[in-house]
Design a protein around this nucleic acid. Structure first.
Lengths: 148, 148
DNA sequence: CCCGAATAGTCACCAATATTGACTATCAAG
DNA sequence: CTTGATAGTCAATATTGGTGACTATTCGGG
């Protein structure tokens, strides 16, 4: 990843800027809406939660984090009242991580904040251009995943 | 940041996927080329190095890391022979972080690997489309920075 | 049906990393 | 020449990450 002097910043540098900046804005806005007890790192769980529950190991796979990290994030979020562990009826080894009512509210708030952020970009670039950008970003993300 | 069930993954989730995947590929390729003693976190320094040197505090600002983190990364990279601290002739408080010969080789290798990665995407999406994507990503990154 | 291999999740430990505050030296403005 | 900001470092602490071991359960092949 190279953002050296003369040349344009590369794909990695730009992705990093976008990620960290979006993350900062999102969690600042969440805090202002009362969700002030969660941090960006909890995003590995929160971003992939589903109303009907998801397994911890699925969260680990989706987020690319180790099982232990996910486990301790779930510990925290459970203590804070965002999620609860329920036995998975389909597999007695597994537990379903389900959002509580507060967790559902957080998910809705996050979705709405992200929608506003993306709308801002769509207005700045043009809706058509932003849609094309988003599609391309999706493709790049998919292609990259295959490559490494 | 929300990649929930039904809806499309959002800007943050996609940026994260691209960043971490590119990072993995880059550092794997670097390791194969003999630069096997550096890790992604050193990217905060390496990505912003300049052949004619750059100040530590400038690295901190550019990478968004704390001064102390940059300082210890520089310690490591200096021990590994990638950079050296030189007094800044323009300010006796400051030190210029300059790449050594090995550091320069690493910078060239990284630039070349990133160019190959981006070429792969350009071929997959079409050169014209990729160029438009890259421009849009640049704009999004800039607009985001202002927003938070 | 049973065995061995794989998987879900947790525990406990150790290594790496981040965060904070204080400190010296230097600069820059008035 | 004084005041306030900045560059960089140190040291202490808190947080995070990574590893291997362990139990319970599932799954597939014989």
């Amino acid at each position: 990843m190279t953002g050296h002097e003369t040349s344009e910043p590369d794909l990695g540098v730009l992705a990093a800027r976008v990620l960290f900046s979006v993350q900062r804005e999102l969690f600042t806005a969440l805090a202002e809406q009362g969700f002030d007890d969660i941090q960006p790192r909890a995003g590995a769980v929160l971003a992939y939660l589903r109303a009907d529950g998801i397994r911890a190991s699925e969260l680990a796979r989706a987020s690319g984090q180790h099982k232990q990290v996910i486990g301790s994030l779930i510990d925290d979020l459970e203590r804070l009242g965002y999620v609860e562990r329920r036995p998975d009826p389909a597999d007695r080894r597994a537990k379903l991580i389900c959002p509580t009512e507060r967790g559902l509210l957080q998910m809705e708030a996050a979705t709405s904040i992200m929608r506003a952020i993306e709308e801002r970009h769509a207005n700045a670039l043009g809706k058509r251009e932003y849609a094309a950008f988003k599609t391309a970003l999706h493709h790049v993300a998919d292609l990259q995943r295959q490559a490494d």
